[in-house]
């Protein structure tokens, strides 16, 4: 196995773990944690295959730096919303279904 394949595999596992956690966890901050783990997995999958050659492909590296900034922006917004939700309802999780409220 090569370095590239190994870290791509780690990325695949992290992505699956993170996506699972993002759905099953209820606490909003845990969901944010899980989504960030999943993002790290996806980022590894982007960059690691580019390390198959003698040097590492710079294009996915730049994409991942973009992705990291996007992820922190989205996380900050999610954390802020979670805080507001908690301030207003005293809860840190979303209710199960709120479809047909009057």
């Amino acid at each position: 196995m090569t370095l590239a394949t190994w870290y791509a595999l780690v990325g695949a596992l992290l992505a699956a773990l993170g996506l699972h956690g993002a759905v099953v966890r209820r606490h909003l901050l845990r969901k944010v944690l899980a989504l960030n783990l999943a993002a790290s997995g996806v980022f590894l999958l982007l960059v690691a295959p580019g390390a198959r050659g003698p040097t590492t492909d710079p294009v996915p590296q730049a994409m991942v730096i973009t992705g990291i900034v996007v992820a922190v922006s989205a996380s900050a917004l999610a954390i802020w919303l979670a805080r507001r939700l908690h301030a207003e309802t005293g809860r840190a999780a979303l209710p199960d279904a709120e479809d047909d409220r009057a």
Binding site: L19, K31, L35, A74, A78, T89, L94
Partner: peptide
């Protein structure tokens, strides 16, 4: 609450 749910789904 709706916005929070929307954002999490969107990120996923």
């Amino acid at each position: 609450g709706a916005a929070t749910r929307y954002l999490l789904v969107s990120m996923l």
